[in-house]
Design a protein around this nucleic acid. Structure first.
Lengths: 176, 176
DNA sequence: CGCCTGATGCAAACGGCTCGCAACAGGGGC
DNA sequence: GCCCCTGTTGCGAGCCGTTTGCATCAGGCG
């Protein structure tokens, strides 16, 4: 199941744009900071802090987990990064795009489908009209069952919880 | 801000129905098990395992937290209980109703609004049509901003994360 | 009413994340 | 180009919510 790499208009298209923004915000561009940014550019979808710290499975050099979190937080503050909580697992981080993708998570198989936020606007509008609630599915996604799992009969364990907590966090798949 | 107690048609309307179901499923009805069930009947909304273990702020006798979790899991297995993850805090447990309430969470002020699942059916339908995804907002709610917070200007810290992690978990408020 | 087996209590571990603190190193100022 | 100030790092410890291991205890069937 290969997945088309998801390339949306990013807030910062190149590494130097991010480092410039960091400096403009009064931050320093250190080795670890740069490596976190590199990892995010190298990743083919949202990744966990641990994956970044581990150097994306050896593709990059390893870093301190603490430092990764601190850098991700800084990058998030300047709007270069955003993260999503896909179920119980760790938060997944990605370079921020001009309008962040939103996500559908299958509680059975753990699949994460990324969708164009515009596609959810009608839905958002009706929620706002009905409840005054301004919904955002980029940080906490929409859970439920994907088409395949909804079709399948009940599995042995109906506890969706477990399935949604894969050992290695699921990589987001580009969707509709 | 007092809240109308939320009483929906429960899967098991009385304590004995739950204990019967437990026995039918081959479980024993022990002291702690009974006290967890009592606490759920006594609670006026979804509560955390810790609140149950603490005896609902003294209204009940205290229990081992581990035991509370184990009982909640069993009760969930037999369909007597369900839980919701309202943001980063602990899971909140309640007696299962014939059709579980669904939730809207404000990422700024932490407010949890419970809504009638039927009110979200149109939304669910359009999601199913567009993505084949069968959405469920009873376990992982809809996040975003409540009417009040959406109206208010950006606060000092735009990090919604923090606000949504109140020290004491927010009690669900009965909504629309 | 006794025995078997499932439930409990307690302690320890776990995953995800945060914090404290001394040592280190960007990069503005000279 | 160098120095010093201050933000950042590395490492350890800690936190919160939850799970697990294990010896002991007690429901409830026979």
């Amino acid at each position: 199941m290969t997945v088309a790499p998801e390339r949306r208009p990013l807030v910062f298209e190149r590494l130097e744009h991010v480092t410039d923004a960091l400096r403009r915000a009064g931050h320093r561009v250190t080795g670890p900071a740069r490596r976190v940014i590199e990892a995010l550019f190298a990743a083919d979808g949202p990744v966990s802090a641990e994956q970044i710290a581990a150097g994306l499975d050896g593709r990059q050099s390893a870093l301190e987990l603490t430092s990764v979190y601190r850098n991700l937080e800084r990058l998030e503050q300047i709007g270069a990064v955003s993260h999503v909580h896909a179920g119980h697992g760790p938060g997944l981080y990605a370079l921020a795009s001009t309008r962040d993708r939103e996500y559908l998570v299958c509680d059975r198989c753990g699949r994460v489908t990324s969708v164009d936020p515009e596609a959810l606007d009608p839905l958002r509008d009706s929620l706002r009209d009905a409840f005054g609630h301004h919904a955002r599915f980029s940080h906490f996604p929409i859970h439920g069952l994907c088409a395949g799992c909804a079709r399948a009969p009940d599995p042995a364990s109906p506890r969706a919880d477990r399935a949604a907590r894969p050992r290695r966090p699921a990589r987001a798949r580009t969707g509709a």
